[in-house]
Each structure stands twice: as structure tokens, then as C-alpha cells.
Design a protein around this nucleic acid. Sequence first.
DNA 1: GCCAACGTTGGC
DNA 2: GCCAACGTTGGC
Length: 149
Amino acid sequence: MANWLLKTEPDVFSIDDLAAAGKQGEPWNGIRNYQARNFLRDMTPGDRVLIYHSSCAEPGIVGEGEVISAPAPDPDALNPESPYYDPKSSADNNRWSVVQVRYIRHWPGVLSLKTLKAMPELENMALLRQARLSVSPVTDAEWQHLEQR
DNA sequence: GCCAACGTTGGC
DNA sequence: GCCAACGTTGGC
């Protein structure tokens, strides 16, 4: 079992939207970065995910969800109508993947990026090490530090 | 809205 | 295969 962090822009899709989706969850689609996709492909049903709000007033961790499907080809990559359409993908060779994610809970308040940066235990956290990575791994130790915060 | 960081593309 | 140009992410 592994832990991950998923960035989302709350103006586009927030943790409240994920909560509203209920038990059946929501496809985490539109990942168009190879490194992020490779992490997606390592996901297993039951993995825990932190939900992180980016490009907003207070960027940070807002809650928690769960992976509820195995990785699958992302159908949006094949749909010319989709903003996530990728002309270089085909049914035979879809470059992109998607998993289904469901809401678990909000965390109390926003655990802000500023706070995360101030925690020495998180010095090596992938989120902080690498800007612009929308799917990243979280170690058990990191998760614990965050949860106890 | 600016711009740093960094990924991708394409000419050579 | 190199690397300049370009595009995108995301904090501020």
C-alpha cells in the first residue's frame, strides 16, 4: 500500500467536488506529464491520497481520498472534444492513464504550502523537491508528520 | 499578471 | 543527440 499526493486547482475541481461525487468517486483524468503518469501507473486500489489545492489563495493540503481503481488508459486522450485530447495517442497506443479516486475526508483547515516548507521532516518530500509535479509519492513517515500537524 | 522552473518540440 | 525556442505550471 502506498501514499500519494494529487494536486488540483479548486477552481476547476476541488475537494468539495470530490466529496460531492460520493462513493463512486471521480476519474483523476487529464494527467499529461510522464513523471506524474508513471506514478499514476504505480497506484493500487486502497492507496491513500492527499488532496492538494494549487493555483489558489492558500495552496496546501486540504484533505484525503482513496484510489478505488487500477490504472486504465485515459479515454479523454482519444476524444478530440476533450481539453485533454492528445493527437499522438490512439486506442492501440494511449500514452495516458487514469485512476478512479474517492473522497475520504477533509482535514481540519488548510495545511498550507508555507507550513509544509517550514517542516524540516518534509525536506525531502517530492512535492517540495520538485515544482510542477501534479502526482507525487508520499512516504509513511511524511504522512504521519502531516497528519499529526 | 509576472516570472522561475522545467518539460516538450523540432531543426540541425 | 543537442539544444534553442517555446509552452505550461503554479507560487507570489
